[in-house]
Each structure stands twice: as structure tokens, then as C-alpha cells.
Design a binder for these strands. Sequence first.
DNA 1: TTACCTGCAAACAGTTTGCAGGCCG
DNA 2: CGGCCTGCAAACTGTTTGCAGGTAA
Lengths: 159, 159
Amino acid sequence: MDKFLQTFARYVLDKKLNITAQRLTIAESFFKSEKHLTAEELYLVVKNFDPSIGQTTVYRTLKLLCDSGLAREIQLGNTSINYEKNYDTEHHDHLICESCGKIIEVTDQSIEFLQNKLAEKHGFTLTTHVLNLYGLCKECHENREHLLNNKKKYFLKKY
Amino acid sequence: MDKFLQTFARYVLDKKLNITAQRLTIAESFFKSEKHLTAEELYLVVKNFDPSIGQTTVYRTLKLLCDSGLAREIQLGNTSINYEKNYDTEHHDHLICESCGKIIEVTDQSIEFLQNKLAEKHGFTLTTHVLNLYGLCKECHENREHLLNNKKKYFLKKY
DNA sequence: TTACCTGCAAACAGTTTGCAGGCCG
DNA sequence: CGGCCTGCAAACTGTTTGCAGGTAA
């Protein structure tokens, strides 16, 4: 973890920018977090540490983290931007439960391989990709069985 | 095309809503369009037909079209929501050029198959998925060759 | 000292909502 | 006629920007 802070610090210095308490606090909170946070969510976490930090600075620091390659923007819902760690980890895809919001990260080499082949076929040079699979997780699927039954009844009545 | 208008009209009536000139104009413009429009873009098209239509109505009608299953929201860039036709077409993935913005629609059965297997492995029941491949199209890749060379020089100088 | 950094408030873009009047059926 | 529909303006959300004062090096 400190390793990432150091990487971040080095990047900041390289760009002739300053290392500040705010930037370190925000970066550290980001590295510590387990989830895909939005700027808003990270702001709330950071504010617990140091209530004087404003959200503007969180936005700006997240942008810095992305520039440095340590973070990455991802699109999960249609609402706002989530930020994901982008170091020390393979690229991964997401299984997203539309009911409880749970997100499972997965990697699948054979899918990656086919994606590359597909891009090649169309003359594309890939830089990145997004694969989100939306649906219901096992638990939610079971809980919703009765809802589905209701829907079935509705259709039967209708036709 | 008229077929889709009729489907839309039937859906509207089914929901005990009214068929109005605005809704028909907006739906027709949407069906005619070849691209993935945003609400804003569709509004501009519609305004050519009938300048009295407001964007609020475009938003509301697009929502109706989604409810009816004839349209679908998709995320392409990080900015706004694009709407895509969702009828009479297979599901398709997108190859997106980050330079010129060109979008190529593709389908790949073997990738779909692997996605389903992946979801199954995690107990997920899929409803939909998003696969966007970002990169450079052939033309842009070639045009950017010299830019890449400049970057290389930069790195060599630095290390 | 000098340029960068920060928090605040204001601006902004995309989208949604409240409302008064209008139209469909 | 009654409830749905519309356009307008205003509200809202997430994000960015201008600015005056503060801080790193």
C-alpha cells in the first residue's frame, strides 16, 4: 500500500507538482478502499479523516490518480463515474447484480483472446475495453422467483 | 418502419396512454435514424420537423420507447446516454475509435457463448451485457504513427 | 519568492420535475 | 368531461472552473 503512495508521490514530483497533505489523504483513502468508489463516495470517506477537505480537491486528485495510471474510470450504472484501482491487478470484467448492486470481478482469458481477434479483424488497435454483464445474482434470482410467476400470470391473462 | 410505429402505438394504447402527434413524430425520427442518438441529438432532428416540440417531451418519449422494448439505453462515452434501437436486431457489441469517434457494431457468437458460461459459473442469470472495445481504427492508427514516435523519443530521453 | 494548491461559490451539462394550460378519447 | 400530455421554467445531480487566499519548495 505504501508502495502505491510512493508511486503516486513520485509521479506528482515528476510532473513538477507539489505533494500536499490533501493529496496524500485522498490517495491513501482511495488505495485503502475495497470497492469501486465514485468521487462522491470517496469524498465522504476522506471527510471522516479531515473534514476540511473539499470535494473539488477529491475530483482533482482522482484525475491525477488516473493520469498517473494508478486509477481508472469505469462505467457501471448510467449515473456517475466510478473509479477503480488500476495497478497490480489484471484487467477484469464485471458481473453486476441489478437487484442488490453486488459486483463480482472476473477475468476470462478466452474472452480477452476473442476480443483481440475481433478487433484485429476490423483493423482496430485496442487500448482498453469494458465488459459488464448485467443480471441477477443467485440469491436475488431465487428471491425473485415469485415476481416472475406474477409476470407470467399477467401475460397469460393478456393473450 | 411503419411496423415499428404500429408496435409503439399499440404499446401506448395498451398502457392506456394517448397517441399524440409529438410522440409519433419523435418515435418516427428515432426509427429513421441510423445512429446511436443522444436525447439531445434526437431533439435537434425532431425540431426540424416540428419546432414546437420541447426537449422534455423527447426525453419522456425516449423513456416510453425504452419501456416498450423498442429502444435501449447504452453507454458509449462517459458523457451522456445514447439510445439504440432494440428490435429486429441481434444484440451487438461496439468497437469505438477514441480518435475519430467512429463506432462499428459487431456480433460475435463465440464471445456471447463464453459470457453465458462465465455468468453461469458465478450463478448469475444474465439479462443483458455491454461490451465496448475502445481503441484506434485503422485510419486513425496510421495517422497517429508519428505521434507514437514522438512519445517514444520522449521516453528514451527520460530514462 | 513563485508557482502551484485549495476551498468556496458559481457555472455547467444532462436530465427530471412541478405546474398551468391544452388535447385525446 | 376527466385524466393524460405538453412546453416552459425551475430544480437537481454530477462535474468543472474562476478566483482570492494559502502553502510547498
